[in-house]
């Protein structure tokens, strides 16, 4: 299976929590590739793609954060108009449900990466392979 691990962190809705979490990552020289946050009235979930998910998870837990690692699919596409729509068509045609997604741009090569949390990673892998869409490994993320 071609997936990468996302670090999901529980964030209580309280001033300073987000700052405390990013400080831990900074202190441990964790390089963040992408992130997104989902929130409700009472709490949020910070989702992070980083160069070293094992270390990030360990350090955050040591600092009493609630953390889980989640397998997500990462794809890399050309940063051109309409490309995301093409990707969504592939997903839609394969009957895959998307829980959430977020994207980030590469620093140099005009590429965009998209992190996808779907209900069936294997099905997504197959659909992207069939459509010729490049999928990223953790090594790819680390090398970015």
């Amino acid at each position: 299976m071609k997936t990468i691990r996302q670090i999901s962190v529980f964030v209580e809705n309280k001033p300073g929590r987000l700052s405390a979490i990013t400080q831990i990552l900074k202190d441990n020289a964790i390089d963040i590739r992408a992130l997104s946050i989902a929130d409700t009235k009472d709490f949020g979930i910070l989702r992070i793609i980083a160069d070293d998910p094992d270390k990030a998870c360990k350090m955050l837990r040591q600092a009493a954060c609630t953390v889980t690692l989640t397998e997500v699919v990462a794809i890399c596409i050309d940063d051109v108009k309409g490309r995301l729509s093409d990707v969504m068509s592939v997903i839609n045609d394969s009957g895959i449900n998307v829980e959430y997604l977020y994207a980030f741009l590469s620093k140099s090569d005009n590429k965009a990466s998209i992190i996808l949390r779907v209900d069936d990673n294997e099905k997504a892998n197959a659909a992207f392979d069939a459509a010729g869409i490049a999928q990223l490994s953790e090594d790819d993320i680390k090398a970015m």
């Binding site: 996302q6 999901s8 529980f10 989902a38 979930i45 609630t66 889980t68 989640t70």
Partner: peptide, 15 residues
């Protein structure tokens, strides 16, 4: 207190 075991990456599951 939230625990690692009860936590998940989606709002839906946590709720």
């Amino acid at each position: 207190e939230m625990t690692n075991e009860q936590f998940s990456d989606t709002i839906k599951d946590v709720q």
